[in-house]
């Protein structure tokens, strides 16, 4: 850990200062997390009077449950699509905005505000846009392309709707980071390449994009975390996991099985799986970013 050379020597003050942080962290983070892990190794009778330690039975049951496996597949499809759409658009718009030096701030203002909108509200806006009877997009699809669009009844349509709602909200976040990353790249590098006769596209792929790779990695990780966890609001407000479980992503399933269905053992096991997942993502992120940190502006 990096250290300061000069310190204050007061004895009890530092403990007092850190105390609120410690109390909240222990009470609302570590104690519940430990409880969750313990519960995941137990089964309890329906009234919660008696609990029995069952080793990995909950996990074995979980991974042999076709509904859970389907939920994993749904989550991967959902997160992958959200990542592709929001990172693709974010990067494209940022590289465009970075070319227009004069209007960068104005462009940023006009693109930034979906960030401030709650995922649930983003879901409601898109539900209206894509509504089978009243939504302009649904009507357009029906009239121009003859597609029978109905996200309330059709699985694929519902998935597309929550992907749009989540990706749309995330484009601005990614845009801000890509733009900051692009602006941190030294102009002299680009100019040197231009003098050597490299076309703008070539410059982008051989200079800009490699230099942007730490940002790209960071944005990808953040988008995946967002789509795994924070998209809960979109699902809860719009599809409630339906139709037919087609949008029942992992985080919504934990909530539904545990908080609504009161299936404690299974829900705890699902929480532990998610916990393992986010630990993996975070560790990977820090390992990778640590190594690539020299590119950071």
């Amino acid at each position: 850990m990096i250290r300061k050379r000069s310190y204050f020597k007061t004895r009890s003050l530092p403990y007092l200062l850190i105390l609120p942080q410690i109390l909240i962290t222990l009470t609302f983070f570590y104690w519940p997390a430990v409880q969750g892990v313990i519960t995941s190794f137990q089964v309890s009778d329906p009234f919660g009077f008696r609990t029995k330690f069952v080793w990995f039975d909950n996990f074995i049951a979980l991974f042999s449950d076709p509904l859970y496996l389907k939920s994993i597949a749904t989550t991967l499809l959902f997160s992958g699509s959200v990542a592709i759409v929001s990172i693709g658009f974010g990067l494209f718009l940022a590289s465009m905005a970075n070319r227009v030096l004069k209007l960068t701030t104005l462009t940023r203002t006009l693109l930034i505000w979906p960030y401030a909108i709650a995922p649930a509200i983003s879901g409601i806006l898109w539900l209206f846009l894509l509504h089978p009877s009243y939504g302009v997009v649904a009507i357009g699809l029906e009239n121009w392309f003859g597609i029978d669009w109905n996200p309330l009844l059709k699985s694929s349509n519902a998935m597309l709707m929550i992907v749009m709602a989540s990706a749309w909200k995330n484009i601005s976040y990614n845009f801000v980071f890509f733009l900051a990353g692009l602006q941190a790249i030294p102009r002299s590098l680009i100019e040197a390449a231009a003098i050597d006769g490299a076309s703008p596209f070539r410059r982008f792929w051989t200079i800009t994009f490699p230099l942007l790779s730490p940002t790209f990695f960071f944005v990808t990780v953040m988008t995946i975390i967002f789509s795994f966890f924070e998209s809960f609001g979109v699902i809860h407000a719009v599809t409630q996991g339906g139709p037919g479980g087609s949008t029942n992503i992992l985080v919504y399933k934990v909530y539904q099985d545990g908080f609504i269905g009161l299936n404690l053992g299974s829900s705890a096991a699902q929480s532990v799986v998610l916990m393992g997942l986010i630990i993996l993502i975070t560790v990977l992120q820090f390992k990778y970013v640590e190594r690539k940190v020299q590119y950071m502006g």
Binding site: F29, Y30, G36, F229, S267, M275
Partner: peptide, 13 residues
């Protein structure tokens, strides 16, 4: 440890 991975125990807390 986002709240999403410890829903029930945090609620009980």
């Amino acid at each position: 440890l986002p709240v999403e991975v410890r829903i029930l125990p945090t609620y009980e807390m």
